[in-house]
Design a binder for these strands. Structure first.
Length: 511
RNA sequence: GGUCCUUUCGUCUAGCGGUUAGGACGCAAGAUUUUCAUUCUUGUAACACCGGUUCGAUUCCGGUAGGGACUACCA
């Protein structure tokens, strides 16, 4: 087991949009695989036909692409252990269930939903320590353990509905190992006889998962903490199959919790608190409900990875917080994953994104600006977009801010911010700006630095203040008082356009 | 209810027997900035509790209390 190739899998169910917990599970699997030069496998677990959501699988694939988690084996990518979708592996599972029946580790059960319900009600009323189908109750139920063999055969032959349940051993104390948590204790007496094979001919998660992990030679199972209670069952399944020697190692990741209040992070929290919980836009085809994604919200995928990686993990002994994907791949270890769940903090994510935008080159940022400008009906060439991104990237929290912070470069202001007009537009302003425009007219080398020198000298020579000239000028150029260094704005706008806007404001603003 | 997991500033976390318990987000104040934002400086604030083990516990063990997950023919 020690020197075996690292093979990990991300195994989502296509039941809806990929939520943040799933994203992080995928990320940690990916980082672990890359760290150990192993394989990252995408397996679709669609054994529940009733919960199938069309489009969900494609969504998962696209989301992983956007995040930048390239898979080594999947339905699309192929691989020698396929198929990689459980519904396409349906034919495999029955024989394994039968193997367990034959070896006495599983049995047929014929109970109806009503009978099961009645049993649970009764247990609850009795306040029994166990509340389901297991060692303590199976002798009272309709199954191949309690019924005569010929009766069972007759039922089976008649095509009666049945499930196959695992026969949980009694009074065994298990000590299992989890890479993150260490020893996990379990007592099989209080565990129940889980259904392994459903009456619709499909396996349950438990069976399919163990069979596929075995067949696909998975070396490490890295999954959410919600699976921890199933670990004893899964261990027992490996043992029952005789696969104990090649059983993967397990690591159960802590959960991502609500930013406020209690419990697991849910889609509702995002809607309520105003942050995305899906990597990309997602519309539920059944309910029509729409959820905005991180991508569309204006997050950079690298920032998204960074913030997700640091939620529940850190490399230890460092104050560094900004890590490239490559760095994360190098540094990642399961031993440094925290045990306790972590509350999601949208504010910190915003900060991460800002850091990434600031550190990104104008070249990589330009396409975001170009795209938003295009949506507003304006074509911006790459080089101009780059120049402007350079000017405004320090003030952007989301990629869309690149456009919001620079709109006025392309769209002449139609109105002027009232508060600032009141604040800066005085009786003498038109006269001052008229003179200032003349000064601008006389500048041949219309570059930021040169304009600054000349205008500054002019202001000093005429005993004017910077505020009296530059504030209203900014208002005239941008329509409001925001944006980068005003001389950068002038250069970018160009002499002609700048003067035109100043003239327009002088004529348009009345006090 | 039962079982399992978990517990350091409001939040994310560092720490792996001896530290002035460190960083980041947030928040507050100040500085820079002719605007807005940024940036910078400073400040704010934590080892859940009770017992052990130990010369010495945030760190190891047990209990209590909080939190979380699971308890389906869902994953």
């Amino acid at each position: 087991m020690e020197n075996q190739e690292v093979r990990v899998r991300f195994a989502p169910s296509p039941t809806g949009g990929l939520h943040l917990g799933g994203v992080r599970t995928a990320l940690f699997n990916y980082l672990f695989a890359r760290k150990h030069n192993g394989k990252f496998i995408l397996r679709i677990e669609d054994t529940d036909q009733t919960r199938f959501v069309p489009g969900a699988e494609e969504y998962i694939v696209k989301s992983l692409e956007w995040i930048g988690l390239d898979v080594d084996e999947s339905d699309i990518k192929g691989g020698e252990y396929g198929p990689y979708r459980q519904s396409d592996r349906k034919h495999l599972y029955r024989q394994y269930a039968m193997q367990l029946v034959d070896s006495g580790n599983a049995y047929y059960a014929f109970d109806t939903p009503e009978e099961l319900e009645a049993m649970r009600k009764k247990l609850e009323a009795e306040k029994a320590p166990v509340q389901s189908y297991g060692p303590a109750t199976r002798n009272t139920m309709k199954n191949s353990l309690t019924m005569p063999a010929d009766e069972v055969k007759a039922l089976l032959d008649s095509g009666a509905q049945y499930v196959i349940r695992f026969k949980m051993p009694e009074n065994e104390k298990l000590v299992l190992h989890d890479i993150i948590r260490g020893e996990i204790n379990a007592d099989t007496s209080i565990l129940d006889d889980k259904v392994l094979f459903k009456s619709d001919g499909m396996p349950t998660y438990h069976l399919a998962n163990i069979v596929d992990d075995h067949l696909m030679k998975i070396s490490h199972v890295i999954r959410g903490e919600e699976w921890l209670p199933s670990l004893p069952l899964h261990f027992l399944l490996y043992r029952a199959f005789g696969w104990q020697d090649t059983m993967p190692q397990f690591a159960h990741l802590p959960l991502i919790l609500k930013p406020d209040g209690k419990g697991k992070l849910s889609k509702r929290d995002g809607d309520r608190l105003g942050f995305p919980v899906f990597p990309m836009n997602w519309t539920d085809p059944k309910t029509g409900e729409f959820s905005k994604g991180y991508k569309e919200y204006g997050f950079l995928p690298e920032a998204f990875i960074n913030m997700m990686a640091l939620l529940g993990w850190n490399p230890g002994n460092t104050d560094q917080e900004i890590f490239s994907k490559d760095e994360l791949c190098q540094l990642f270890t399961l031993e440094h994953v925290n045990k306790a769940g972590s509350k999601f903090d949208p504010e910190k994510n915003k900060w991460f994104n800002k850091q990434y935008i600031e550190r990104s080159s104008a070249k990589t940022l330009a396409p975001y600006l170009i795209e938003d400008a295009k949506a507003a009906g304006i074509d911006v060439p790459q080089d101009r977009a780059e120049q402007i991104c350079e000017l405004v990237k320090d003030r952007a929290k989301y990629t869309h801010d690149l456009w919001h912070e620079s709109e006025y470069f392309f769209i002449e202001p139609e109105k002027y911010d009232e508060v600032n007009v009141k604040k800066f537009w005085k009786a003498e302003t038109p006269e001052i700006l008229t003179k200032a425009a003349d000064v601008l007219k006389g500048i041949n080398d219309f570059t930021s630095k040169n304009i600054e020198t000349i205008v500054s000298e002019w202001i000093k020579a005429n005993e004017l203040s910077f505020g009296k000239v530059l504030n209203p000028m900014r208002l005239a150029l941008c329509g409001e008082c925001k944006g980068p260094h005003i001389f950068d704005i002038l250069e970018q706008l160009g002499k002609e356009e700048s003067i035109k806007r100043i003239d327009k404001a002088i004529k348009g603003i009345t006090i």
